[in-house]
């Protein structure tokens, strides 16, 4: 089978990449577009470290052949990171001491991004369900759950101020 061109809107920027059949989205992001914030963990979909948001849904980019998401909108951790600063979710992770080795952070952040976009006021149970496919080996999850809850509250506050 021949390589083909896949068009993606990555973090708001149109990208055209040439991919061989079966090339995974994580390979395109990391190796071709050099967006190395997305981590390659288990490569079989069981750790969640490579999670990105595709058309509003959090997916494991190691399981997605790039040619199946042609024309899709992809958000990676770089896309939620303001130039020279941190987004509200990232800030909450830092403030809440919810990072240790950091390898799960990008995946957790993207799953939380999709969750809050869909449900701005998630309960702890909602958060646990959302991150249940993301393995963290360091923190015991409590600080991550708290950080996502805190960030969601802060983002709701900011939206309210913007609306007023």
């Amino acid at each position: 089978m021949a390589s083909r061109i896949v068009t993606l809107l990555v973090n708001g920027t149109p990208q055209e990449v040439i991919v061989r059949p079966g090339t995974t989205l994580v390979s395109v992001l990391r190796d071709q577009l050099e967006l190395t914030g997305t981590k390659r963990g288990c490569a079989d979909g069981s750790c969640g470290a490579c999670s990105v948001v595709v058309d509003g849904k959090a997916v494991r980019s190691c399981l997605i052949p790039a040619e199946t998401v042609d024309e899709a909108e992809v958000t990676t951790v770089e896309g939620i990171t303001p130039v020279g600063g941190l987004g509200p979710l990232q800030e909450a992770l830092v403030e809440g001491f919810a990072t240790q080795c950091g390898f799960c952070n990008s995946g957790m952040l993207m799953v939380a991004t999709a969750l809050i976009a869909e449900n701005p006021d998630p309960s702890d149970a909602d958060i646990m369900r959302a991150i249940s496919g993301n393995v963290c080996r360091c923190t015991g999850y409590h600080p991550i759950i708290r950080a996502i809850r805190d960030a969601a509250a802060k983002m709701r506050g900011a939206q309210q101020i913007a609306a007023e």
Binding site: C42, D44, G45, S46, C47, A125, I127, M128, R129, I131, S132, V135, R137, G140, Y141, H142, I144, I145
Partner: peptide, 17 residues
């Protein structure tokens, strides 16, 4: 052979600490 059958407690299996 992978994290899906190497069991570890998930976020909802973690009690108050």
């Amino acid at each position: 052979v992978s994290f899906s059958d190497y069991l570890m407690p998930g976020p909802s299996d973690t009690p108050p600490v």
